[in-house]
Design a protein around this nucleic acid. Structure first.
Lengths: 70, 70
DNA sequence: CCTCGATGTCAAATTTACCTGACACGCCAT
DNA sequence: ATGGCGTGTCAGGTAAATTTGACATCGAGG
């Protein structure tokens, strides 16, 4: 359960997109609902491939979804 | 050994930065040399956190290092 | 020729991401 | 009340990323 330093704006992006539900996002990504919850909560950082897919769902660049502070 | 769709420009970026060696990059990232090799060869896609760290080493945005086709 | 540094490869182990299935909670409607 | 929906959590698993250690190749220099 690696606490990652990467933060994200998934929750805001979901609501900005027709209040897309976590389950909806999960099926669009081809992952489970629990995975979406864990990523959204920053409990671990997703693979780069999944990060790209999430950005693609919301039609924004990757760094509009994920931020790496410092 | 997941064949990832994500491509990268790590090798070119290493040579553009004082011909930085794979071992040098590995120690800067805090990972092993084998990990750098595998990522550079696209044998699996790194975690998002490591992708951000790699981009930071080369002082370029993430999408200058990694590309997701389609 | 010999060595060294950079690169690559393999097997086996550990860690982390992700899955399956179940259950609990708060909300809003009926 | 109660039933569905969105959200969150937990335990136990599989798969993939990463580590460790060893060995092999190739090019450049001494």
């Amino acid at each position: 359960m690696t606490v990652t330093r990467v933060t994200n704006s998934i929750r805001a992006l979901r609501f900005a997109h027709q209040e897309m539900t976590q389950a909806d996002l999960a099926t669009r990504l081809g992952v489970t609902r629990q995975t979406v919850i864990a990523i959204e909560q920053g409990r671990y950082s997703p693979t780069l491939e999944m990060a790209f897919q999430i950005a693609r769902v919301f039609k924004v660049p990757l760094d509009a979804v994920f931020q790496y502070p410092d």
